[in-house]
Design a protein around this nucleic acid. Structure first.
Lengths: 221, 221
DNA sequence: CGAAACCTTAAGGAACCCTGAAGGGGCGGC
DNA sequence: GCCGCCCCTTCAGGGTTCCTTAAGGTTTCG
């Protein structure tokens, strides 16, 4: 669920990027050619890195097709300094844009930033009864009173809010909310959930889905 | 009132920078050659980006001339790693210094940072209980009594006042309030915050946002 | 009822932050 | 130039907040 899809035809550059990404702990799938992506394919994909200069299907076509039925973040690579492509790409829904040449480290950093915030990017506000969750400002208030949440608690809540009403697996939370490098224990997650529940009060908005994970109750109040 | 003047003779680099700036929402005027600027010219200019390596009038001359009768922020570009130019430029009144090659994003960030500060210095006053912060005059008074703040302390407070109520990251403060070239330690920032707090008295207007940075408390009193 | 999954509390330890004191550079006065 | 002052920075110690681990209890399911 935390796979990065790289679409890049240049063998040397692609290999380098894959190495860097894997060294940084990401799972990578590398397509040497551009082709349209089916809905079935990107179920497990957390982020797409797309080179615009591809033989065959044009990069922008892929982007457009992707955006038609998915919210997956897309990071666009391009050799053109020209800003027309960039404006076009961003308008078509790209989340970030990197021009070649770039430092691999820079790319990695951007990928990391995207994935960290993947959860909160698109759903800025969620209201549940007296509970207000603001993903953009990273603020949570209950009956208007601001809550003091730690970073992990905040990410956890945002992850659940993003999939409001649907269960989020413990596995996903472990690798995406907790430090992905640390490979933390399941118990750690328990503790964070516990503390978050306590801070959120009796309303018990966070339900346990036995054997799966957790879910934020949509049916309000 | 938010025009950026770019003085840069290199066609490729200049075009790229203009693209980036415009993509970031700035209005740009691009001069390919260095010439002295009249008072009438920079009435609408919010910031100048000046390449030091110019044919014709030397970059430093322009800078000196500019400073003689204007306060407009100047951001200097230069290919020389050499620090003599840098020292000279900063002493002549440059507000920032970027050595080539640079990432366009970096430049944009610095421009944005400068303009934020510029704008804020004009949007004059912020009042917080007995505390009065005047950005234009760079004066801070508490219950009518003027405080003696050093340059760094003042910039720090103004930066926080500008984002009143929202946290400002340590990272941003480090590169924009402290000398951007010095790559100062985090501890340095601690010290400045500490002293500023002491001067501001018990009211503890400056809150620390753990793992993020600092925030000026908006909730009055 | 037993095993597996989950909850809670408490206690380390790591990351982060505060502050007093000392070091060093720039600038004006002599 | 030499000295002193002010300011910025660094150092060192101790403090706080947060994340994780450990351990024992509770719930769920077959």
């Amino acid at each position: 669920m935390s796979v990065v899809l790289l679409i890049e035809d240049d063998e040397a550059l692609g290999g380098q990027v894959v190495d860097q990404l894997e060294a940084a702990g990401f799972e990578v799938v590398w397509w040497r050619t551009g082709r349209l992506i089916d809905a079935a394919d990107y179920r497990d994909i957390a982020l797409v890195i797309l080179d615009l200069m591809l033989p065959g299907v044009a990069g922008l076509e892929i982007l457009k097709h992707l955006r038609r039925d998915s919210e997956v973040p897309v990071l666009v690579l391009s050799a053109r300094q020209d800003s027309r492509d960039k404006v076009l790409a961003l308008r078509l829904g790209a989340d970030d844009y990197v021009t070649k040449p770039f430092w691999p480290e820079e790319l990695i950093e951007r990928v990391r930033a995207r994935l960290r915030r993947f959860v909160m990017e698109r759903s800025s506000q969620v209201r549940l009864g007296g509970l207000l969750i603001d993903g953009a400002k990273r603020e949570v208030s209950i009956e208007g009173v601001c809550l003091e949440l730690t970073r992990v608690e905040m990410d956890l809540l945002l992850a659940l809010a993003h999939r409001l009403g649907d269960p989020v697996s413990r596995r996903w939370l472990l690798t995406n909310v907790l430090d992905p490098e640390k490979e933390a224990t399941e118990r750690t997650l328990d503790v964070h959930v516990s503390r978050l529940r306590k801070k959120l009060g009796d309303g018990s908005v966070i339900e346990t889905v036995w054997g799966i994970g957790y879910r934020l109750r949509k049916g309000a109040e």
